[in-house]
Structure formats: C-alpha cells, structure tokens
Write a protein that binds this DNA or RNA. Sequence first.
DNA 1: GGAAAATGATTAT
DNA 2: TAATCCTTTTCCG
Length: 295
Amino acid sequence: MPEGHSIHRLARQFTSVFAGHRLEVSSPQGRFAAGAARLDGQVLTGAAAHGKQLFLAFGNELYLRIHLGLYGAFDFGGDSTFLGASSIGAPRKVGEREIASDDDGGTYAGPPPPRGAVRVRLVSGHGWADLRGPTACEVITDAERAAVVARLGPDPLQDEADGAEFVTRLRRKGSPVGLLLMNQEILAGVGNVYRAEVLFRQRISPFRLGRDVAEGEAADLWKDIASVMSDGVAEGRIITTLPADRDSGAVPVPVEEAHYVYKRTGLPCRRCGTPVAGTEMGARKLYWCPVCQER
DNA sequence: GGAAAATGATTAT
DNA sequence: TAATCCTTTTCCG
C-alpha cells in the first residue's frame, strides 16, 4: 500500500480541495451504491488520517472510512483552484512519485466518464476524486470511528510525542521486530517498505525479538520512523537513503537509489557491500543486510 | 492474452 | 500457515 505517509497526504488533499464543499457521492461500479446514497449531497467537513485509515467527515455526522489495502488508489482532477496531486495511492513501480496534476487552464467541464472499477466518485463544483480497489470503504458513525482508532497503536505522523507508548508496546512482545513493525496495534502507519528500511537504518535485525530491543534503541527507532515518514509526506514518495549513501548528487533521487534494502535481494549493501538477503516474514517479502543488521 | 506482483489485513484451518 | 478480498500494471509468450 500506500503506507501511512500516503494516507496523510490524502487527508491533506481532501481538506484543501473538498472541505466546506457540498459533494455528489456515487458508486459508478455499484458496489458502494447504498453507502454513497447516505453521503450524497452532504458537505465534507473534514478529513483525517490515523495510520493507514482515512476518515472523511460529512455534515450529517457520518464518516466515510477508507483503507486502501495493498493496491487501492485515488485519482483527482479539476479546475485551477483544485490543486495537488492527480493520483495518490498504490505505486506502480518502486520509488514512484505521485503524478502531478495537469494544468488544464480552467477548461474543467466536470469529471470524465468513469474508467475501470470506480468504487466511489466524489464531485464538487471544482473537481472530482475517484477511488479504486480499496480494502475497506464504509459509512460509519463517530463512535465506530473512535472504536477503529482505539484498536490502533500510536501514529508517528500524528503524535510524534507518543514514542513512549510505542516503546512499551514493542518491548512487551516476544515476536520478531520485523513482524511487530507491521502490526498496526504496535504503531500505526508502517508498511513493508518502511519496516525494511528503518530496521536497516537503525542496524537492527528483523529477527530480534521485541523484548530484546533496548529501551533506547526502541526510542531511536520511533524517532527515525517519524522522521523518515515525515519526509515521505513532504516528498510524496518513500526516500530512506541519506545523500551520502547515494551515488550522484543529482536533485531528483533516481528510483534505484531511494532504498537501502527494499527489493534489493542479491545486490550489494550500500554500506558494506554484502549481498542483501531476502526471505518472507508475515507473508510479506523481507529484506535486510546480514552484516549491518547482525543482531 | 494470461500470469504475477504490489508500499494490507482479516478470517479460517 | 493458508485462503480470501480488492484492482491495475507489467511482463512474458
């Protein structure tokens, strides 16, 4: 997916282009027709992200809860007041950047005919948003929204100060850190790219047990996650390598230099040259350097 | 034109 | 651990 940084960008985008506007809500695909009818014609009052959960608030006190899952994505379009990216969600290639929106110079004449399986379409007087492939898309009450959030661990992009809570939750467990970072009850927002990259940056083996991570190490881990994910929010893509570890000083980071270990099985570690190892953990691909992350 | 893969998560066995 | 859900794009023949 789209890891937490993408969802926070979506919340920001929805707030800036739709908040305060009355929306037409529909489900061109049909699978969300009943839910769309409950929101159609309401004003969008706000948008917020917690981890990978996106909540759109409407004037009738209902929320649209969206989880993009592994390949959900939003497409946007509209007039010149409708700024921001034209697509946020599942990337198609490693290191892919969001697509910048086209400047169609005020020729906006409404949304295009839906293409593919559009679960939800939101339309204001200035622009539109299409959602495809989400794992969750449902209308819920505020109490239900609160219940969803209550089940999640702290979100480093929301409350960077909640590090102590993360440290406690992580060190309570006897399972491998590589698994724990993917567990949204330990912290919310990290996915498969950030888990591999952050463990490399902190030189922690993904196989080390949560309870064997020292308190200081866990605190540093949290800080690094918050830092690198904030960069992701600012950049619109995941970049985890330090400039010193990248070959060229060219301003746009080449895709192949954006990561330390993610999807680099067999390639030399950028720090020590040892071939990057790959296996499966938690039914997802795991990458690490067996030397830099010995324990 | 078909399979595989993808930055997830839940449920069942 | 395995099966299942959701959709698009890429790669291979």
